[in-house]
Design a protein around this nucleic acid. Structure first.
Lengths: 157, 157
DNA sequence: TATTGTTATACTCTATAACTATA
DNA sequence: TATAGTTATAGAGTATAACAATA
């Protein structure tokens, strides 16, 4: 590779690594006000995004977790009344998980908070720059998402 | 805000949230081959970046951790011979932490692996696009890094 | 037999509080 | 008194293995 590329790779690597660590930290900090962990938030988001009443197995898959881990996360969300479990009428082994109204409300609140944060960045940019950012980040996201199998790590995600 | 901005904010928010979750997952997965956690890797990186022989307090600060947490992380790294502790000759309360040769070797290996990953993305882009990506991500990183206080979360970073 | 979900177990990360040694 | 670091404790997330119920 040419020198320019090599230098860009090095710079981008630094930035992306910092971004990976800092954005998680920032998210965890923001969620703290709601007494939610990143894993719990990730589960709520998946429930909001997917069709209502999905199984534990599906939810675990959507969150890149094994089902035993999901059991604990859903236990804690259910204790707080943010989600509910009910038995699947078609398969008596399965539990169908749903967002409650309370769960939906909290996740919408967080969405507003996050939107405000992003807005503060994007107003600094021109429409062209915003489009470019979206396009470049999409390319990057695809490359990190698709090449591995689950599960992603033995510990400390 | 105008419609275009609003739509861009919404799209970027989705992408950045996914990026936050997926990049951490990807990193954890990559580190698994080395039997390292993200927190351990973060500590090794800080030791590589900072002057040799920093105190536990400084290391904890660099990793955005409280010192009690850092004690456990350094314990496990030291057991594996990746770092060493020695008493500060100028302050008998303080422990100075250093990377060992073994620790340095492992972090360089990981660096190569990460570089290869980024390269696969960047070769798809023109030099101008790469510069733009670097510039835009730097702006974003600054906005998420600087406005909070430590510590960043009660649990699950 | 295979799948769904839970429980049991073990480890890491995380924080707060209490403590020792030193400054 | 204040600071550096550890230990004690508690809770969350993570994985694997074993298990009961159901398909």
């Amino acid at each position: 590779m040419d020198d320019r590329l090599e230098r860009d790779v090095s710079n981008l690597q630094q930035i992306l690594m910092q971004l990976s660590l800092a954005s998680r930290r920032r998210l965890a900090h923001d969620l703290d006000s709601y007494n939610l962990t990143v894993a719990q938030y990730s589960a709520l988001r998946a429930l909001q995004r997917l069709p209502d009443g999905i199984s534990m197995t599906e939810l675990a898959g959507a969150c890149h977790q094994v089902s035993a881990t999901m059991t604990g996360i859903v236990d804690r969300l259910a204790e707080r009344g943010l989600v509910t479990r009910k038995q699947d009428p078609n398969d008596r082994r399965a539990q169908l998980v749903s967002l409650t109204q309370k769960g939906l409300t909290i996740i919408i609140e967080i969405d507003v908070q996050q939107t405000n944060r992003i807005s503060r960045v994007l107003v600094q940019l021109t429409p062209t720059e915003r489009q470019e950012m979206l396009r470049l980040l999409t390319i990057y996201l695809e490359t990190i998402q698709d090449d591995p199998k689950q599960p992603f790590g033995t510990n400390s995600k």
